[in-house]
Simulated assay, not measured.
Amino acid sequence: MWNAIDMPLDFRIFTEPQQGASYDDLLAIAKATEDLGFDAFFRSDHYLSMGSASGLPGPTDAWTTLAGLARETSRIRLGTLVTSATFRHPGVLGIQVAQVDQMSGGRVELGLGAGWFEEEHKAYGIPFPSKRFGRLEEQLALITGMWETPAGETFTFKGEYYELIDCPALPKPAQSQLPVIVGGKGPKRTPALAAQFGHEYNAAFPEIDSIRSRFTVIRDACEELGRSPDDLVYSAALVVCVGRDEAEFRRRAAAIGREPDELRKHGVAGTPAEAAEVIGRAAEQGCERFYLQVLDLSDLDHLDLIAKEVIA
């Protein structure tokens, strides 16, 4: 039976800065992520807070943030879950991501999605087209096409939404193949995009026992395309909330405005032993990489606990 339980697991810290975080807050989390032995620091790409969060001191731009972190970290990988295809022209995004990859010495990964949060588009005057999936498909083709164009040659692309004519397709990423992450729940189009363009498929906040079936759909799409399903990394993003005992767990749950029972049902939550058990169950379902969504960015002791008493 296919699973990841006997493979080395990859653990990444995933943040939601739109809920309220400065660059300095994110830098502190990223440095703790590196010092504690996690594999990567990722952030969302949003400009408006959600729920009751104030969002203070205001939004930080994902790729501006990652450019700074590229120069202030040395080991961890850096990326987005996920960049919204509505925010940036793909030609510009291709330049930005390649440059940040160069600045990091080849540690960047691009998660790219269609975009969904209409309110933030209205708030900042960003167009929010009703049909977005076709734009996402063209962006994936355009950006990867730019990066794959040999130096000294030009790249021309003509789609329904975007057109490039004799683009120099520069700069190139430092990595010969910069990883692209595709996620989503769609039964047909998302698997097709993951199989065609992805180096990784990410299941966002799945029910643990549904992970295998989500991954199976992606693997089947790879086989239909004639690609080995094992070419992809299979990952999941899950909220994390852990306490050394029940009282500490409940205190952390209250700090992020979540119910303890709900966290235990849907996330990596509870005591260290409980959290490790959830990770084990997900690995048995085929999950090789975990994006642990940390919602209280001021609680660095939480990361220390996760690293030393859950992952270790």
Score class of each variant (00 low, 15 high):
A273V: 05
E223H: 08
Q293L: 04
I5N: 10
A237F: 04
G243C: 05
R244N: 14
V100D: 01
T86R: 00
Y234P: 10
M103D: 09
M146F: 11
Y161N: 12
R250V: 13
L81I: 01
L303E: 03
L93Y: 07
G183I: 03
S104F: 10
D231V: 02
K188C: 12
D166M: 06
A204M: 09
F205P: 06
D10N: 13
Q285P: 08
R289G: 10
L292V: 04
R252L: 13
F11H: 07
I13E: 00
L140H: 13
Y162V: 14
P206S: 01
L26S: 10
A32M: 04
E288W: 09
A114R: 08
P173E: 01
P187K: 03
L110V: 04
D220W: 03
E309Q: 14
A21T: 04
I279V: 04
Q175G: 09
I211K: 09
T86E: 01
E248M: 14
A204S: 13
F249K: 09
G106V: 14
S228E: 11
R289Y: 14
R189F: 05
V108G: 02
C222I: 13
C222G: 11
N202D: 09
A40G: 12
F128P: 00
R289T: 13
E34D: 12
V268F: 12
P129S: 02
K172D: 13
R258L: 10
P272Q: 14
G58E: 03
L303D: 00
K31V: 11
Q19K: 02
M7D: 14
A221R: 05
G243L: 03
E120P: 02
D39W: 01
E309V: 10
L9K: 08
G115C: 04
K265G: 06
A53F: 15
Q196F: 09
R43H: 08
G257T: 05
S130V: 06
R107I: 12
H199R: 06
E223C: 04
R252S: 14
G115H: 04
